[in-house]
Design a binder for these strands. Sequence first.
DNA 1: CGGTATCCTTTCTGATACTG
DNA 2: CAGTATCAGAAAGGATACCG
Lengths: 135, 135
Amino acid sequence: METIPDLRSYGGADAYLRNCASREVLDFLSSKWVCLTIGALRPGTMRFSELRRRLDGITQKMLTQSLRDCERNGLVLRTVYPTVPPRVEYRLTDLGQSLAGLTDAIRIWSESHMSDIQVAQGEYDERAARAPEPV
Amino acid sequence: METIPDLRSYGGADAYLRNCASREVLDFLSSKWVCLTIGALRPGTMRFSELRRRLDGITQKMLTQSLRDCERNGLVLRTVYPTVPPRVEYRLTDLGQSLAGLTDAIRIWSESHMSDIQVAQGEYDERAARAPEPV
DNA sequence: CGGTATCCTTTCTGATACTG
DNA sequence: CAGTATCAGAAAGGATACCG
């Protein structure tokens, strides 16, 4: 017989609680390059240098770190071919694939609502500048 | 007649480019508390103190900052009732609602795949400990 | 109640140099 | 090619005190 402790969240996990492990997962997914890294790997296998070109502005260090973290969390698989020079390929695991659709949705939302947000920012800043304090 | 410049991304926006404004939007959505803040407001209006209790572990400063940023980006509406003591209510805008489903999906993924990730971490760390360097 | 302001620590990030 | 190592600056985040 199985225990089903709390069906409001999954397996008792609740990211709103500070000590729940899912909070750490969410924090990891919120790091700067994870969304773009996962998204870049979604179509298929890529080499390190290909990823570096795709993720415009990323440094070697951050790409390495992002890929290592993704690998450690089971999202990305790293394959080294012992050639000279070395060839290293990255691809999503099944777990990574199950996430990629969701992160891509966030990225596409960012792209498609970019101008809405710019308008909102402009209005907010103008209001803030016009009414610094009610004297 | 409409101009449709580049259909690979939305309105020409491409978060993979470092200077595209959508990159900033994506970075903002990747900040630590945004996902939980938006998610907490999804069911309806909430007061500051209610949010603070819901987002376990958040400091007053970070909640204020997160809400201000969301407000500035047009995701959240802030309403002040000039009573004593003051009553301040927060709710999602239509733009915020259009995002909330996506961020909630990420949070739920984190909760439902938490144990998969913990297993992956354990395996990765064990491999790293067992093969520190091929001598 | 719902904040601001300040200080301080930690984490993140980038730049640079070097390596098998 | 695909990293690692180190350093320094920037940014994020937290603790605390105070305010209308």
